Amino acid sequence: MTARSPSFTRGQALAEYLVALLVLAMLIGFGAGGEDSVIDILLSAVRTAFERQSGFISLPL
């Protein structure tokens, strides 16, 4: 077995992290089988909560 330098192995780990993050971003960003993506569901929930809060605040005392 040949010993590899520490800088080479550090670069390999960085490449593996980048691939894992890319796969994770694709899973979060795209919906599976025609479903909405997680980002779309999250933004829809935030929009609904904001509309409900603003409607509650605008009620007279």
Rank of each mutant, 00 (worst) to 15 (best):
Y17E: 14
A25P: 01
L61K: 12
T48Y: 00
L21V: 08
V23S: 08
I57C: 01
E51F: 12
L24V: 06
S5P: 04
E16D: 09
V23M: 10
G33R: 04
A49V: 04
P60T: 06
E35D: 14
L43N: 14
L22I: 04
A20S: 14
E51L: 14
A15V: 09
L14A: 12
G29R: 14
R10T: 13
S7Q: 09
I41L: 07
R10S: 13
L27R: 15
I39N: 00
G33E: 10
F56N: 11
A49C: 03
L22P: 00
Y17D: 13
L21E: 15
L18K: 13
A3H: 08
A20F: 10
A13Y: 07
A13T: 10
F50K: 10
F56R: 09
I57E: 09
L61A: 13
S44M: 03
L42N: 02
E16T: 07
A45T: 02
T2Q: 10
I41V: 15
A20R: 14
S54A: 14
E16P: 00
Q53F: 12
L24F: 12
L24P: 00
P60R: 11
A45L: 08
I57W: 01
F50G: 01
L43A: 03
S44G: 15
F50R: 13
E51H: 13
G31P: 00
V23L: 10
L14K: 15
S37G: 07
V46Q: 02
F50A: 11
R10F: 07
F30Y: 15
R52L: 10
G34H: 07
A20H: 09
T48A: 05
D36E: 13
S7W: 10
S37A: 10
G55V: 02
S58Q: 10
